[in-house]
Amino acid sequence: MIDKQQVTQTDNERWLELLRECILHGMLFKAAMWDLALLSRQPLKISYRAVLEDLSRWAEREHNRIKATLRQNGYEFAGTQKQGSFYAVRFRERGYYREAVYSIEVLRAECQKLVDRWVEQRREGSR
């Protein structure tokens, strides 16, 4: 029997986590801009605009920051594709092509959590 304590989170897993973070921020900044376009027809558009633009800008900045970190460490996006209820992401990991298949419903839920986190950060920043 091998000691289970030998198993620790490897670099690979940390990069997988970062990859997902990158995808989530990328989706969020696009979703926020999309929502902004929809809301531009609403009477209170001016009130919404600042918030959504702020959110989108923050998500885009995070997306680009994580993407740069990934690239520096040999991870590069090779393409994304919506396949029914899945979101397939092809990326190159130190020369090897790999694929990650995310559930769209889970990504949407995770984006909601990101927004909550962003709201929390803003609240703390304004204190």
């Binding site: 198993v7 897993e13 995310y102």
Partner: peptide, 17 residues
Amino acid sequence: PWKLAETIRERVRLETG
């Protein structure tokens, strides 16, 4: 096998929750 099992677990968690 341990490392592989851990990677598989992590991928399933990240991609499906």
